[in-house]
Every structure is written in C-alpha cells, then in structure tokens.
C-alpha cells in the first residue's frame, strides 16, 4: 500500500512536470461560431494562448514605432471593430493613403491589405512597423528595444525559447490578429436557428441582399466577402491604382479586395479611402450603379431600389453588427 502511494506520487510529479514543459506549445482552440469554417493557421505558426497574449502585448506596445508615440492600437480600436474612425490614419510622418482596415476574421483571408500585396499575416504585420508614414521603425531595432525590457524578453524566451527576433514579433502579432473572430451578430444568431433574431424588415433586407440588390455576388460566404478584387466605381477617377500597383496590370486599376460587411456600424467611414461617411451614402452609390470608373465592375449596375427597400437593406446590414466583439 505504501509502495502504491509512492508510485502514484512519482507519477503525479512526472505528469505535472510534463504539463509545465508543454504549456507554451499546446494548440489553443479559438472559439468560433458553428457556421464558420475551422480556423486556418500556418503549419509553422500554430495558435497558442501564450502567443496570443504576447502578440496582444506587442500590439499595444509603442516601442514598435520610431519615436515611441504610437502602437498598432493607435489605428485599431476595439470599440471600432479594430479600426479607427478617420478617413485615413495619422502616422508618424503624415497620413496613410488608405482607410484603416478592421481586424477581424483575417485568419480566413487569402492575402492582406486592400490590394492583396501581402501573402501572409506573418509578413503583413511587419509592414506598418517599417512603413515610413506609419511607425517608421526598422524591425531589427524594434527587437533590440524589446530585448532591453527584461520582463518582455523573459516572456519571449518562455514562449519561443529565444530573445525577440523578427520571427518572434511576426508570429506573435499575427497569431493575436488571427485570434480575433467576430461571428455573434444577430444574423449569426438567426443562422443558428433563432427566427426572432431578425426583424421582418431585416429579413426583407436579406432577401434584397441576395436578390434585387445582388450584393451577394461579391459579399458572399460566412464573412460576407469572396476576397476577390473589384473596382466598385467609388469615383469616376482617382489616383490610387489599387491592385494594379501589385500586379502592374492596367486591367487591375482601381480594384480593391472586397470588404467584409460585418460590423459596419463600427467601421465607418467606408470605401478604400474612407470617402463615404454613412451607410446610406454607400447604398445610394450602389443603387445609382457606381460613379462610372472606366474599369468599374460589370456587377455594379443601377438597382432601382425604392426608399423602403433601401431602408430594409440597411436594416439587414445592421444585423451584422457584433456588439460582443467590440465590447468584450
């Protein structure tokens, strides 16, 4: 009996040691709605709770900028679904060229930035740091600064087994952003079987969204985007060449990645340059068939929506607001 007790004691000791050793590397299951696909992540950057926590710390750390005055949070506020309310954002050396992108459900995106120039989140997250207009800091200097913080350096070693390197920074930030999932709007509740989650007007708006207004031709799927690049005719002409900057193909002029329609109440203003202040303006734009850019998508045609229909469509769009995401 005494021997049995001793064996159990040793087994418990071994088990607890193993748990402690494995803690930083166990795969963390981000809570996602049942109607969302499984959360994808790169093979060499699995999601762990420790990485998410470290990434969040870095996301809020102003040492990522050259003069220590701005962090990622400066343009990506929780209450605005991880974007800001400016048309274009103020960086260290002026204003960005485009409207700040909201950060949710990016784990599912096949490429990043409005023009798709970054193929992975791991590469994308370094861009605002090194961009001369935004944070204007070299990533190697960022690592030096972070390694001068004993507590943070210790954390890096606990999570990655090494001091801060560009690998550590990019994997932490990307994992934190990958964990930001928004999918508990009234529409999601409706999809999960609660018929009363949408009002009659919102259901009418949903029918228009899929039918007469044909929004669904681009804003499809669980995240209301097909991730394609489209010229939606925001203006008859504009200097931002969009996707053409990446591909050098004139036929890509003015095309941008189709935006998600979730959380629109929090992510104003709208369009690639924040040129539209209200959702009513946006709906009117599409109802008019766009501004007639030479490369405007054929999908953008006059819709002939009545006032009631426009209101119903707006009501449906508001059902995609996820209050939990912006408050919790």
């Amino acid at each position: 009996m005494k021997n049995l007790f001793l064996i159990l004691l040793i087994w418990a000791g071994v088990t607890s040691c193993r748990k402690k050793e494995n803690l930083p590397s166990y795969e963390y299951k981000v809570a996602i709605p049942a109607h969302f696909p499984a959360l994808p992540f790169p093979e060499n950057n699995p999601i762990t709770l420790e990485k998410i926590k470290l990434g969040k710390l870095l996301f809020e750390d102003k040492r990522l900028s050259k003069n220590g005055t701005i962090s990622c949070v400066s343009c990506h506020f929780k209450e605005f679904a991880m974007t800001d309310t400016a048309k274009v954002s103020q960086g260290l050396n002026g204003f960005t060229k485009r409207n700040s992108v909201p950060l949710f459900n990016l784990a599912y995106h096949p490429y990043f930035f409005r023009d798709g120039g970054a193929p992975t989140l791991e590469i994308q997250v370094i861009s605002p740091i090194e961009d001369h207009i935004e944070m204007d800091e070299n990533i190697l200097i960022v690592c030096e600064k972070l390694n001068n913080d004993p507590q943070l350096k210790k954390l890096s070693n606990e999570v990655f087994g090494t001091d801060f390197t560009p690998f550590v920074v990019s994997r932490s930030l990307s994992t934190f952003i990958r964990s930001l999932i928004s999918g508990s709007a009234p529409y999601d509740n409706y999809l999960e079987g609660n018929e009363n989650a949408l009002s009659a007007q919102q259901k009418e708006g949903l029918a228009l969204f899929k039918g007469k207004a044909n929004c669904i031709s681009c804003h499809s799927g669980f995240d209301f985007t097909d991730y394609s690049f489209q010229n939606n005719g925001t203006y008859a002409s504009h200097s931002d060449k969009g996707r053409q900057i990446i591909t050098n193909n004139p036929l890509d002029e003015g095309k941008f990645k189709v935006a998600s329609l979730r959380n629109l109440s929090y992510t104003f203003p709208y369009m690639f340059d924040g040129g539209f202040e209200t959702l009513e303006q946006v709906i009117e734009h599409y109802n008019n068939g766009g501004a007639g850019h030479w490369n405007q998508s054929d999908l953008i045609q006059p819709l002939g929506l009545t006032t009631d229909e426009k209101e119903a469509l707006l009501a449906f769009l508001l059902s995609l607001n996820d209050a939990n995401f912006v408050t919790k």
């Binding site: 930035f113 120039g117 970054a118 994308q124 370094i126 090194e130 990533i139 200097i141 560009p166 990446i246």
Partner: peptide, 18 residues
C-alpha cells in the same frame, strides 16, 4: 539573422508588396 534574405537594417524588403 545574418542570412542575406533575413530582415536587414536599413530595410531591403518591401512589406506592401511582399
């Protein structure tokens, strides 16, 4: 670190177009 294709100072990599 030290590999020619690693991040450098000054930067020799575009993030906007990878």
């Amino acid at each position: 670190t030290g590999h020619p294709l690693a991040y450098q100072t000054p930067s020799i990599h575009w993030n906007w177009n990878s």
